[in-house]
């Protein structure tokens, strides 16, 4: 999604003279074009994520908005207090961009993974998390963040093109079955594995699939998911994030708040590093049971 992100940002920086872009010394082979066109509105803040957030907040307090870019763990965990106070408490339009959410940086190792980021960021006051799933979600997310002019976190990953007949939205229904036996709700790009799994199970398991790309969700989005769960009686949540603090806890709590219970539920989440070994993103997904085969097995168990 980095290409889509860079294209969208180049557009924004050209259109708006009050938008700034800060990077924590990252962006080789990606941000050079933005650097060229934005002049002094492009800032390499150095390997200094904490002050980068504070500087972005100061810039935003002058009536601007600011994107702040780094690898997901460095853009979030490293500077969470600065995000909490300098950005969120002041409700400033600072948009934190974390590249390589989940196990996205694969063999780079655990230091470069972000599998607890949504748990951290979604609890912050005034914060909205955006987790684009498909390539064209990126521009939708950026447009939405800028329209809201509030603190936001954008978690970028690897997104494939959107399937035909679905549209961008906070909790977009990607496929809907006439008589669903299961409702699958995904967080971000892991939906690619879910769609692969659905191909494997074919028509044996009629499923509704919702692609969640925003936390929190509004009432209407939750109600649509709730109606599906009520019809299917079975919910599977799939996310490349630890179970604690992720989409599954959030969604189940919201459904429960609506009075919906009595449905069966499975949560497929990031397991961390169960064998203490490291590899590609696909390796870690498989270790967590997030690969297409394991998701297909979970779907078959719904029968």
């Amino acid at each position: 999604m980095r290409n889509e992100f860079c294209a969208a940002i180049a557009n924004v920086m050209s259109e708006s003279t009050t938008t700034f872009f800060l990077t924590g010394d990252l962006g080789f082979n990606a941000l050079e074009g933005i650097q060229q066109l934005a002049g002094s509105r492009f800032i390499n803040a150095g390997v200094a994520e904490q002050s980068m957030i504070g500087i972005a907040a100061g810039i935003a307090s002058c009536g601007n908005d600011a994107f702040v870019y780094s690898i997901a763990p460095f853009a979030t965990f490293r500077c969470i207090e600065q995000i909490r106070i300098d950005v969120c408490i002041h409700d400033l339009p600072v948009y934190i961009v974390g590249n390589g959410g989940g196990y996205g940086y694969g063999i780079m190792g655990a230091t470069h993974h972000a599998i607890e980021d949504i748990g951290c960021m979604s609890t912050l006051y005034n914060m909205t998390c955006w987790i684009p799933a498909f390539a064209d979600d990126v521009r939708y997310c950026i447009d939405s963040m800028r329209a809201e002019r509030k603190p936001a976190y954008l978690r970028l990953g690897m997104g494939r093109p959107r399937p035909a007949a679905s549209v961008c939205g906070p909790a977009s229904p990607v496929t809907l079955a006439s008589d669903p036996k299961v409702t699958v709700v995904t967080l971000g790009p892991i939906i690619a594995n879910v769609l692969d799994a659905l191909e494997r199970v074919g028509s044996d398991v009629p499923a509704d699939v919702f692609s969640v790309i925003r936390i929190p969700l509004d009432e209407a989005d939750i109600a649509r998911i709730a109606a599906s769960v009520e019809a299917s009686g079975r919910l599977i949540v799939v996310e490349e994030h630890v179970a604690r603090g992720g989409l599954s806890e959030y969604l189940i709590a919201r459904l429960h708040d609506m009075g919906l219970d009595g449905f069966r539920c499975s949560r497929l989440c990031a397991a961390g590093y169960p064998n203490k070994l490291y590899g590609s993103q696909r390796y870690h997904q498989a270790q967590s049971g997030l690969d297409a085969d394991r998701i297909a097995a979970a779907l078959r168990r719904t029968q």
Binding site: I43, Q50, S51, M52, I53, G54, I55, A56, A57, G58, I59, A60, S61, C62, G63, N64, E81, Q82, I85, D86, I89, H90
Partner: peptide
């Protein structure tokens, strides 16, 4: 305008304002 009290926050914010 700002919430302050956790030390080390004012200087980056002021730096950002000065930049802006």
């Amino acid at each position: 305008p700002f919430a302050l009290g956790s030390l080390g926050h004012g200087l980056p914010i002021a730096t950002g304002i000065a930049y802006g």
